[in-house]
Design a protein around this nucleic acid. Structure first.
Lengths: 158, 158
DNA sequence: GATACAGTACTCGGATAGTCTGTGTCCGAGTTCCTTGGG
DNA sequence: CCCAAGGAACTCGGACACAGACTATCCGAGTACTGTATC
């Protein structure tokens, strides 16, 4: 099981955007995080499609969070970049082979699929309890409360 | 986030093996589940490497569970086939770019990585609470208690 | 009749191609700001 | 001095190559059974 690497960049970008009042260009975010600019832009486009950020074109354009960081969950960001479909996809093995179960008896999903869905649910719940604001607070705490101020300063300076 | 499709086959195969006293050849399992024989064999090899099943060669050879089905968790099977490394891999973005955090201040993992690790933990816990025996019981319940008996009968026949 | 041996059929195991989803990149369309010319 | 129009620079957005991993497959090494020849 593997998650798209763009998720990491998108989350860091969201944390950074939560510290900015004005739009921030994708190239600027890429510079700050040391990532390929064009590819980070791709992830931001996904966030825009999901309605998490909004984009403005032009000379002072860039990306902005559409909602306060306290109202954006990590789950939303992950699903925007990585897709919403669950990790486990049941291919209905039980309906194949010599002991195939007839389709009309398969209203309820397979017991294996139910178990995997339950785990996925636990995972989703854990991520939906955490917001971008929580992440920012956590990063700040790790650095004696200077990290976010540094980000704001860097964004303001040229 | 996507899981290897082999996980589904491996889980179904384990449930089937839990109903068999004698070794079951990979080709036999593939026939029962309607899957490519050679590829299912590959998944069984992974299970063998993980110590979940044992293989015996020769004319009456095949695969057997090494432990009672009540002592094999779904998590073990998933990790044997899909690998043990977590879905989210932190590439230490915080140590890159103009505001890079010095390495000596990064003893603790990134706040984002901690959040993702927590979710992964919840997912793992959910899967480790379910055993192959539970799955077999669930499948049996879905089919008025005939499914496992049918499997045993099919394995014994021919 | 019992036993040892050779042959055979069956099993797993790793090494080998094909394909599909990320990963990374680029250039064009659109918008905003700035400059400049006119009133 | 104020205003409007044109140009330029900057932004995003989707379309285009490249790569690694999953998917699928095959053939060789090894083992247990079976039949036969011998004692």
């Amino acid at each position: 099981m593997k998650m798209t690497s763009g998720v990491e960049w998108a989350l860091h970008a969201c944390v950074t955007l939560s510290q900015a009042a004005d739009p921030v260009p994708a190239a600027r975010l890429a510079e700050l995080h040391g990532t390929p600019p064009a590819y980070l832009a791709k992830q931001l486009q996904s966030l825009a499609r999901a309605g998490i950020v909004t984009s403005t074109a032009g000379q002072v354009g860039g990306y902005t969070l559409t909602r306060p960081a306290t109202e954006v969950t990590v789950l939303e960001v992950v699903q925007a970049v990585d897709g919403t479909e669950p990790a486990y996809r049941c291919t209905e093995i039980r309906q194949r082979g010599p002991l195939a179960v007839p389709a009309e008896k398969c209203e309820r999903s397979c017991a294996i699929a139910r178990a995997m869905a339950e785990a996925q649910e636990a995972w989703s719940r854990a991520l939906s309890r955490i917001t971008i604001a929580d992440l920012a607070r956590g990063i700040d705490a790790d650095s004696d409360g200077t990290a976010m101020a540094d980000v704001r300063g860097w964004l303001a300076a040229v």
